[in-house]
């Protein structure tokens, strides 16, 4: 991947997370097949779906609705009641920037601004090609290393705008 001015461009199409519709339907069915048609299984199924796909999609809700014969609105209602479910497809890479006090004092805002500039998205958003998601998080508990950024599961301390830029560039 190369950065060009304020935005980034791809070397090739991103295929890793791209699943064909058919494949998604198949994978969803696989999850559903593990569960008896009982209302009590709704939450476990939702967890299963989120684990597999990273989020709960409209198609998943429709599939679950058919399987359990529960209306889509009811499933969506149950899912939105719990904070751990997400409803938009996350990017292949999640960047989290800490906004805890220590990080803040040490300039985490500048890190955030840099990531926003590079990806063209705001916290809570995902790039339109689903490459990156950006999140803001409260203290990571690694204040000694402030400011902190977490790319996928890896924690990086003492961040600076050039460093985060380099990190993003290194992502395949």
């Amino acid at each position: 991947m190369v950065f060009k001015g304020n935005s980034y461009h791809f070397k090739g199409a991103n295929t890793k997370m791209q699943r064909t519709e058919k494949k998604i339907a198949y994978e969803l069915q696989e999850i559903l097949n593990n569960y008896e048609i009982e209302r009590d299984n709704l939450i476990p199924v939702l967890h299963g779906v989120q684990e597999k796909f990273g989020y709960i999609s409209e198609e998943s809700v429709a599939g679950i609705s058919r399987h359990f014969n529960i209306s889509e609105s009811e499933i969506y209602g149950v899912a939105t009641f719990y904070t751990q479910f997400r409803f938009t497809r996350p990017g292949d890479h999640t960047i989290r920037v800490c906004r805890g006090t220590a990080c803040h004092v040490r300039g985490s805002q500048r890190i955030m601004n840099e990531v926003c500039k590079l990806t063209g998205i705001k916290p809570g958003e995902t790039t339109s090609d689903y490459r990156f998601s950006l999140e803001q998080v409260a203290c990571f508990g690694s204040c000694a290393l402030a400011p902190i950024a977490v790319v996928n599961e890896a924690v990086y301390g003492r961040m600076t705008p050039p460093k985060i830029k380099q990190l993003l560039e290194e992502i395949e």
Binding site: E58, I70, E72, S73, E74, Y76, G77, F87
Partner: peptide, 28 residues
């Protein structure tokens, strides 16, 4: 049997709505 609307969200954001805020014409 299968309703088009239900309670969605929680706490102070709880409200009546459709799955993914779809238009009623796109629901049951």
């Amino acid at each position: 049997g299968r309703g088009a609307i239900d309670f969605i969200n929680r706490g102070k954001n709880a409200r009546i709505g459709t799955s993914f805020h779809k238009k009623h014409t796109e629901t049951d």
